[in-house]
Amino acid sequence: MSKPFAYAVLLAATLALAACEKEPESKLESAKESLSEGMESVGDAGEKTGEAIEKKTDQLTGHKPTTGEKIQDAADDAADGLEAAGDEVKDTLEGK
Score class of each variant (00 low, 15 high):
Glu88His: 12
Glu25Asn: 09
Gly68Ala: 11
Ala74Cys: 05
Gly68Asp: 12
Gly46Leu: 00
Glu37Pro: 05
Leu11Trp: 11
Thr61Lys: 05
Cys20Phe: 14
Gly50Gln: 08
Cys20Met: 12
Thr92Tyr: 13
Gly86Asn: 10
Glu88Tyr: 12
Glu88Ser: 15
Ala18Lys: 10
Asp87Gly: 04
Gly43Arg: 14
Glu40Phe: 01
Thr66Ser: 14
Ala16Leu: 15
Asp76Arg: 11
Glu69Phe: 04
Lys32Trp: 03
Thr66Leu: 03
Leu15Trp: 11
Lys27Met: 07
Lys96Met: 06
Pro65Asp: 08
Ala18Pro: 09
Ala85Cys: 00
Glu88Phe: 11
Glu29Arg: 10
Leu11Cys: 10
Glu23Val: 00
Ala13Trp: 05
Asp80Ser: 09
Gln59Cys: 03
Gly95Met: 06
Ala52Val: 05
Asp80Tyr: 02
Thr61Ala: 06
Glu37Thr: 08
Leu28Lys: 13
Leu60Asn: 02
Gly38Val: 11
Ala16Tyr: 15
Glu54Val: 01
Leu60Gly: 01
Leu17Gln: 14
Ser2Trp: 15
Gly86Glu: 14
Gly50Val: 05
Leu15Gly: 09
His63Arg: 10
Ser30Arg: 01
Asp44Val: 04
Glu47Phe: 07
Glu25Thr: 09
Glu88Trp: 08
Ser36Phe: 14
Val89Ala: 09
Glu25Trp: 11
Ser34Gly: 15
Ser2Tyr: 01
Asp91Leu: 10
Ser2Asn: 09
Leu82Ile: 02
Gly62Ala: 10
Gly81Val: 00
Lys22Asp: 05
Ser41Glu: 00
Ala6Cys: 04
Lys27Val: 00
Asp77Cys: 00
Asp91Met: 05
Thr92Asn: 09
Pro65Glu: 01
Leu93Thr: 05
Thr49Asn: 06
Asp77His: 14
Ala78Thr: 10
Leu17Met: 13
Thr49Val: 14
Lys64Pro: 00
Ser2Phe: 11
Gly68Ser: 08
Glu21Val: 15
Glu83Lys: 06
Ala52Pro: 01
Leu60Ser: 03
Ser34His: 14
Leu17Ala: 15
Phe5Ser: 04
Gly50Thr: 06
Gly38Phe: 06
Ala6His: 09
Gly86Tyr: 14
Leu28Asn: 07
Ala16Lys: 08
Leu82Glu: 07
Met1Leu: 12
Glu94Arg: 11
Thr61Gln: 03
Pro4Arg: 13
Asp44Lys: 15
Asp77Pro: 03
Ala78Leu: 09
Lys22Pro: 06
Met39Phe: 10
Asp73Asn: 02
Thr67Tyr: 09
Gln59Asp: 10
Thr49Gly: 11
Lys22Gln: 08
Leu82Phe: 07
Thr66His: 04
Glu69Cys: 10
Glu47Ala: 07
Phe5Tyr: 13
Gly43Val: 07
Thr92Gln: 11
Asp76Ile: 06
Asp73Cys: 00
Ser30Gly: 12
Asp58His: 07
Ala8Asp: 13
Ala75Gly: 08
Asp91Ile: 05
Tyr7Leu: 11
Ala79Glu: 15
Ile53Asp: 03
Met39Lys: 13
Phe5Val: 09
Ala19Met: 14
Ala16Glu: 15
Ser34Pro: 12
Glu54Ser: 07
Ala75Asp: 14
Glu33Thr: 07
Ala19Glu: 12
Asp91Ser: 11
Gly86Pro: 02
Ala13Met: 15
Lys55Ser: 06
Pro24Leu: 03
Lys56Tyr: 06
Lys90Tyr: 07
Glu25Tyr: 10
Gln59Ala: 10
Lys3Leu: 13
